[in-house]
Write a protein that binds this DNA or RNA. Structure first.
Lengths: 111, 111
DNA sequence: TCGTTGGTACGACGACCACCGTACCAAATA
DNA sequence: TATTTGGTACGGTGGTCGTCGTACCAACGA
């Protein structure tokens, strides 16, 4: 099987309740904050979350299916990025408000 | 027994994940939108939600305990109001973003 | 070729959630 | 006093959620 290529909801299908739900979990909030901090897309690991791989997969899927992040498969890994433009277009100011409200994520951008 | 007078979290205890979760339900989103529309506090009924009284009580409690609304008992009824100032202070722009993102609530204040 | 790495699929478990019905209460009104 | 009104408390039901472990797969490096 080739891809089954990761379903992403289109911009106009984003629903505010779904997005808010995706953002209402501390772990996912952490992921999103990290993603917002790093300008380049980054893979699923290395977020320093203390959960297992399967749980990570779950959280990333919830975020993707809500339309909060985009996932692009690259080799054996996956690039995750925030869907800033889409979110800003549909829900102006929401992402920024959430990001500035969220507790600082220890910015592991290690030196 | 007198009051047990409705616990409201103080401003500095508001948590963004909890607030987002409270707002991530369609019914509660509707309540909040209505509350934002009507400048005066209003009682729990009359929101036109198609759920039973007990479910209404549940949703209002979730909103109150998250710090989204304030409930003040008045006679046999209760006045609900949005905690705008507190929310704006802790999470600037969040409430406005959610309100403008939320689907219009049939604005029973028909033009 | 073998092991490692990054990720998925599936099944399970306990916790929580939205919703309901019933019973109940206090205030206002008749 | 009896009734209505606006709301709470409790218990239950079905569904979803967060988490995990195990098994698995594809790509890469030794």
């Amino acid at each position: 099987m080739v891809a089954m290529s990761l379903h992403h909801p289109s911009r106009e299908d984003l629903e505010v309740a779904t997005v808010l739900h995706a953002l209402s979990d501390p772990q996912r909030l952490r992921i999103v904050t990290r993603l917002a901090g790093a300008e380049e897309p980054c893979s699923c690991g290395g977020f320093g979350l203390e959960v297992t791989k399967s749980t990570l997969t779950h959280h990333f899927r919830v975020l993707r299916e809500a339309g909060v992040i985009a996932q692009r498969p690259v080799g054996t890994s996956k690039f995750n990025s925030l869907r800033r433009e889409d979110l800003d277009a549909r829900f102006p100011g929401l992402l920024d408000a959430v990001l500035s409200a969220a507790p600082a994520p220890v910015t592991s951008a290690a030196p």
